[in-house]
Simulated assay, not measured.
Amino acid sequence: MDNRRDFLKKSLLTLGAAGLGTSLASAIDFSTGAKAKLSINKGDVILFQGDSITDAGRNKQNLKPNDGNAFGNGYAFMAASTLLNKYADKDIKVYNRGISGNRVPDLINRWQEDALDIKPNILSIMIGVNDFWRTMDSGAKNTPAEYKAQYKQLLDSTKSALPNVKLIIIEPFGVKNVKHVTDAWFPEFPKYQNVAKEIAQEYGAIFLPYQQIFDQGLKRNSDGGYWTTDGVHTTMAGANLMAEAWLNLIK
């Protein structure tokens, strides 16, 4: 019964992200990265990678594609569900390998098994908020320049192993004045966001500007707690906002 309730809850959450090409696209400037949208082809393998925002409570013992239990309840689940419905004739496989707390060095350490061995045609990476956040709450030492060097190492190995992979580089975001995200995050955090943008440009990736997307969301509901629980992790509304924006990258 609990599994059935969980399934029904996720199914209802996904309905709001079910439309490709929604009005959000007209409100967001995607020109900060590659302008071309992605096509979904027969047999494509799509991989969502990142930290807790992508993880979203997934069952890490379940490594299957196209399985709700392996996706958690965040934006990756909502986007993947819509893709599997919209492209039912394409026989695609969609994976989630986000892990809570990860930084770029964590991705590097597990990249072979959790990315390269999967051989994705489309690879979506959302990483960076912890690379900055740990400098605030744990005294970690990691400058924007170091973050960029580590990110480049990750993508160099990716392009070497998967030269034709289509990359989506996602901007880390923070909604101000919600629990953890205070004025103390600024102006340092935007430097990490700029790195993600620069990385996308340098590697010919599509850049997904989630900071701008959440800023637009705040114009519709100015309560940051409506979109996130702590300035970073999303509510139902925030996860749906993210999924909608991700799906707008697809033709």
Results as ranks from 00 to 15, higher is better:
N240V: 11
K119G: 08
I169T: 08
K176D: 08
N59G: 03
K179V: 04
D117R: 00
I92K: 06
K179N: 07
M242W: 06
S100N: 13
G43C: 10
N142D: 05
L15G: 03
K141T: 11
V104H: 02
K166L: 02
E198N: 08
S11M: 15
I108Q: 07
A196E: 08
K60N: 08
S52M: 09
D89F: 09
G74W: 12
N142Q: 14
L38V: 08
D51C: 14
A239H: 08
I168M: 10
Y75G: 10
Q201C: 07
L167Q: 03
D6N: 14
G57C: 13
V178Q: 07
A17D: 12
K176E: 14
A18D: 05
T234M: 06
A56D: 11
A149D: 09
N102E: 05
D114H: 14
V165A: 07
P144Y: 05
K197G: 01
N130H: 13
P163T: 05
R110Y: 09
A243K: 07
F71R: 09
Y95M: 13
N102C: 02
R5D: 12
T32W: 11
V175D: 09
N69W: 05
I40M: 13
F71P: 05
R220D: 11
G72F: 06
W111L: 13
G21S: 14
M136V: 15
V195L: 11
F132C: 06
T14Q: 11
D55E: 15
A243V: 01
W111A: 08
S31P: 02
T182V: 02
S11V: 15
P187T: 01
H233M: 12
N221Y: 05
A56P: 10
T229M: 00
I206Y: 04
Q61M: 12
K35W: 06
A25H: 00
A79R: 02
D131M: 10
I118K: 03
W246K: 12
K42L: 11
A140V: 02
W227H: 08
Q112T: 07
P144L: 04
I108G: 03
A27T: 01
I118G: 03
A17C: 14
K64T: 10
A205T: 02
V181I: 14
L162A: 11
P190M: 01
